[in-house]
Write a protein that binds this DNA or RNA. Structure first.
Lengths: 179, 179
DNA sequence: GCCACTTATGCACATAGTTGCATACGAATG
DNA sequence: CATTCGTATGCAACTATGTGCATAAGTGGC
């Protein structure tokens, strides 16, 4: 249901094709959701069959036609329903933790590679967040509360990523120091 | 593959039945992984068919028989392979963030309920972590590095949960203050 | 004596997500 | 002129996870 809800929210904001949604996931919603193009097209088709969205085919010169989806009244109702239902706390599933439980079988070299790579990926992620923030929320406190709201998600994303990075450095120092 | 790897790790440590694994997930691995009993039994059966584990049926008086699984050489090899392959950074998918993008349609009362509930669940989670820590790692620094390793995962779990709680309080104060 | 809980296993169906493949055209790169 | 990239859509097969139901016996509370 969550992908469906995310699609409803972005289509409510502005009608879009599957391809547009994919771009939004990459550019402004990277810290919220992501899905492959296959998954998006499939879900939009299902939502159409469920009456939640309406497609309009837009012909283009020299390009494939675009199918632009617009949210319906039924779609708005479903979204409202979803917003009002509290979410369950997400189940914890961190494969990396498992490796720490197999410490003795986990070669030190593999561990260092893994931690270094994770460090890089998280640093990159911070960069992406920073770019989104600069583009969409250059001055959040001058925005009205309802426009500012999405910015809070960036703040948490950043905080969590920094917490991970702190931990990586602590673990790396400790275990390297112990050798 | 991750559930499979987690099962291999716990079975390597000590042979166990599906039910035992379920108990381990609840008691000492709550911050690492969790899965329903259905999923665990199914996966163990598949791993048996793949030659990664070997079952031994243990009869019990007045109770259903237990199927105790033991890791095989092929299982150990598969685990080694998994440990040496770096994991991809997990894809970001936070349904709660989506609600912040639908701020205007998200009733203030529903929002307050949601945040309060999340706060409770996270506080409870900290409690679980504390219990695990007290039971398994009462004095981590007196343990040898390879015994201490799993404790790092608890540390990160705690740090991340605290980061969430901080953010909930910040957002709540700000938006309540703005009213 | 009934009800809920714990121990112990599992099947069947449904939803969610990944991976591989396919099509078609324009524009830029070499 | 061949290759790669971007725009734009999708099917098919597979893996992973969730939900509902089923069975069977002992244990403890009211």
């Amino acid at each position: 249901m969550s992908l469906r809800a995310v699609l409803l929210i972005t289509l409510k904001d502005e009608p879009a094709s599957g391809y547009d949604v994919l771009q939004r996931f990459r550019k402004g919603l990277a810290h919220v959701w992501n899905a492959s193009h296959q998954q998006i097209y499939r879900e939009l088709e299902r939502m159409y069959r469920a009456g939640l969205v309406e497609p309009e085919t837009v012909a283009q010169a020299g390009r494939p036609d675009r199918k632009v989806y617009r949210i319906t009244a039924a779609g708005e109702a479903a979204l409202q329903q979803w917003l009002e239902t509290p979410l369950d706390a997400p189940r914890v599933r961190v494969p990396l933790y498992a490796k720490f439980f197999a410490w003795e079988s986990w070669p030190a070299e593999a561990r260092r590679r893994e931690m270094a790579r994770l460090r890089e990926q998280l640093t990159e992620r911070l960069e992406v967040y920073r770019a989104i923030e600069q583009h969409w929320f250059p001055d959040p406190w001058s925005m009205p509360a309802e426009k500012r709201a999405p910015w809070h998600t960036l703040r948490l994303g950043r905080k969590l990523t920094r917490t991970w990075l702190e931990w990586i450095d602590e673990v790396t120092e400790e275990e390297d120091g112990a050798q």
